[in-house]
Simulated scan of single mutants.
Amino acid sequence: MKKSQHPLLRTEAVWVALTLIIVFASLRYDDFLSPYNIESFFSYNSMFILISIGMCFVIMTGGIDLSVGGVVALSSVMVAYVSPYGIVTALIVGALTGLICGLINAVVIIRLRIAPFIATLAMMLASRGVALLVSGKQSVPISWEGSFPEYGMGLMFDLIPWPVVVCLVIAIMAWVLLEKMPFGRAVLAVGEDEEAAKLMGLKVNKTITLVYVISGVLAGLAGVTLAASFGAGQPAEGVGWELIAISAVVVGGTLLTGGLGSITASIAGVVLMGLIFNILNFENGYGSFTISTYWQSVIRGLFLLLVLIIQAEVLKRLRNKKTAQ
């Protein structure tokens, strides 16, 4: 079986690029390393880290989850309604919302044998539709009493935003799950060759179910952060977030064909892409040039295309090397 980190995938490239960008930005912009910029950057991007971790597990099995953006929106709306009952209740409701969506995805894919692309696309449309129906097509304000607003705007030990703390805990759990537990080996085996995994006695359907449930739960938790940070459930938010997660995972070296991936490199991919747009915002502030959000989407798409081209070339060389042997 392949290991989750493979030198030919050059996952270390994302770390090199990340280091170079941080050095460049810290030298060019006075406020780049300011506590405010660091806190706001990681607090906002913690949502993308969560959905990217879930997406990484799914893609490693050879699947795809296009529903995460819709699930985030639906979760944020559901959480806003229960926000008067505190952050614990909100976290449970958000996670359950995502769990149900992820479980439905898994059932449709496994039992009905619908391709993951189609199944999760349907869930994306359904979850977004439910979010709009439940919210009445408008934002749902959260309750400003109790512990819920503190989650989105407070700091642990007056230092780390609470969404970042939760994100760190989940990232560590995900890394342990992939690198140290039998489940991680099963995920990689299913992605490498599903039929071979069945012959090995692995519970393929259970593994696939769990990765979609994990993806759904993490999208649900991202919805909690969205509602708490923006002060309202956002039924129209999350559009294109699935593409951001896929981009980050691919930038981190995970194969879209499955069987290979890295949680830490996927997180680095999120941070790398986030820093690129953070730098563009600084440049906008400097007045050097102005890039609209539309052009930012173009840049993100071109960046993803470049990474896919590089990844395809690496895989081609890997196949040629195996053939020569």
Score class of each variant (00 low, 15 high):
19 T>G: 15
322 K>W: 11
263 I>R: 02
116 P>Q: 02
262 S>Y: 09
82 V>H: 03
30 D>I: 09
142 I>Y: 03
204 V>S: 03
178 L>P: 12
75 S>Q: 07
205 N>K: 15
222 A>M: 03
193 D>T: 07
227 A>Q: 03
252 G>N: 01
295 W>S: 11
3 K>W: 11
1 M>P: 10
41 F>S: 00
243 L>N: 06
315 L>D: 12
16 V>D: 10
229 S>D: 12
192 E>D: 13
184 G>K: 03
48 F>T: 00
234 Q>D: 10
8 L>I: 13
77 V>F: 05
186 A>C: 07
133 L>S: 13
312 A>D: 14
86 G>T: 08
251 V>D: 07
114 I>Y: 01
184 G>R: 03
318 L>V: 12
198 K>D: 13
96 L>Q: 01
21 I>P: 09
112 L>M: 14
91 L>H: 00
186 A>V: 01
15 W>T: 12
37 N>K: 02
76 S>H: 06
65 D>P: 05
251 V>N: 08
218 L>N: 07
242 E>W: 01
259 G>V: 02
177 L>H: 10
44 Y>G: 02
139 S>R: 12
109 I>H: 05
134 V>A: 09
304 L>A: 00
12 E>W: 14
277 F>R: 00
229 S>C: 08
299 I>Q: 01
61 T>V: 06
174 A>Q: 12
230 F>N: 07
28 R>A: 13
134 V>G: 04
109 I>P: 02
57 F>G: 05
289 F>V: 03
297 S>E: 13
23 V>Y: 11
198 K>R: 15
269 G>D: 03
21 I>M: 15
186 A>D: 06
127 S>Q: 11
225 T>G: 11
169 V>M: 11
